[in-house]
Design a protein around this nucleic acid. Structure first.
Lengths: 163, 163
DNA sequence: CAGTTCGTTCAATCTCGTTTGAACAGTTAG
DNA sequence: CTAACTGTTCAAACGAGATTGAACGAACTG
C-alpha cells in the first residue's frame, strides 16, 4: 500500500502538532508523535520526514526528544538497517513522565522561590526600606500565594493518581 | 516615596512574566499583573510603563487583556484624571475564570474533534480505503484517547472545586 | 578499500508573535 | 479655539526559537 495519509491521520497530526505548540514544544515533535501514534507499523526516519514533509534534521531531533521521554521507542525491523520508531501505547504513562520530568521540577522551583521572597521581604523590613503598612500588604499578598501553592501541592499528586 | 522597586518585587515580576510566557501569553501581561499584584496603591498606565520600562502600547493592551479576565480592575483616583489599575485580590477567582474562558473551551473543542475523527474513521472503513487490520488498530488508539478524555472530564471539575 | 546508506550536528534561515514608535481620537484645561 | 494630556490603534521592527540544508562521521556493502 502506498499509505496515503487518510483524512483521519492528517487531522490528528494537526491536533498533536498544535497541542505541542501550545505547551511550548516544537510543532514537529507533536507531528512526529501523532504520525507514529496512528501508524500500524513502525516507521523509518525517512518515512516520517517524507510523510510529514519536514526535514530529516527535524525528525532526528524530534525522535530523540520523544525517545528520551519514552513516548516512542526504537524497534528493529528485520531486513532494514534503518532505525524504526513506534509510539508507546500507554499515553497515560507518557503524561505522567512529562509531568514529573518537566512540570514538577518547575513547580518545586517556584515553591522555593516563594520562600526566598518571604525572607527577602523580612530582610527589607528590617533594613527599614519598607514602611510597616507596605510590609503588611506585601506579606498578605505573598501569604495568599503560599496558600495557593500549598493547595496545589495537594492537588497535583491526586491528578497523577486519577489520570 | 520614590518607590524604588525592591528586590522582592523585581523577583516576583520576573516570575510572573515567565509564567505567562510558558503558558503562551505575552510576557508583558505577566509583568503588569505582577507589578500590580504587589503594589499597595493603584498605578496609572504611565507608572506601569515607567517602572517596567516597557512601552505604553504594551501596557495598554496588557491592561485591557487583564481587565477582560477581571484579573485587575480600573479604579478612580481623585484629583488624577488618568486611569489607575489595581490587582484583584482573589487570585483563585482569576485562575477559575482563566480556566473557563480559555482552557475549558479548548478542551471541549478537542472532545468534539475526537468524535469527528471516529466517524471519519468509520466512513473510511466503509469506503474500503482502510484495511480491516488497520481499521482495528486505529479504532483501538482512538478509543484510548477517548478514555483519557473522559477521565480528564471528571478530573477537571474536581480541580476547580479544590483549588 | 572505495562507495553507499544512515543518522546527527551546526550554522544560517525563516517564521511567528511580541513589542514598539508614531499617528490618531477623545477629553480636559486655559 | 488652541494646547496639553491620555489612552488606543496599527504598521513596522525585533527577537526567540523552530526548521532546514549541507557537511560530517559511523556503519554497512560489495
Amino acid at each position: 500500500m502506498a499509505t496515503p495519509l487518510g483524512r483521519t491521520r492528517l487531522e490528528f497530526i494537526e491536533v498533536a502538532g498544535r497541542v505541542c505548540q501550545i505547551v511550548g514544544l516544537p510543532r514537529s515533535v507533536g507531528q512526529v508523535y501523532g504520525l507514529l501514534y496512528l501508524s500500524p507499523r513502525p516507521l523509518a526516519l525517512d518515512d516520517i520526514a517524507d510523510q510529514l514533509s519536514i526535514s530529516k534534521a527535524s525528525v532526528s531531533t524530534g525522535t530523540r526528544q520523544l525517545a528520551a521521554w519514552q513516548a516512542i521507542r526504537q524497534v528493529w525491523v528485520p531486513g532494514d538497517r534503518r532505525d524504526h520508531f513506534e509510539a508507546v501505547g500507554d499515553l497515560r504513562e507518557l503524561l505522567r513522565s512529562v509531568y514529573s520530568g518537566f512540570f514538577s521540577p518547575k513547580y518545586a522551583k517556584t515553591g522555593r522561590k516563594l520562600e526566598v521572597l518571604l525572607s527577602t521581604l523580612e530582610a527589607e523590613r528590617r533594613e527599614g526600606s519598607v514602611s510597616r503598612d507596605d510590609h503588611d500588604f506585601y506579606k498578605e499578598r505573598l501569604a495568599h500565594l503560599v496558600q495557593i501553592q500549598s493547595r496545589a501541592s495537594k492537588l497535583l499528586p491526586l491528578m497523577e493518581k486519577l489520570l
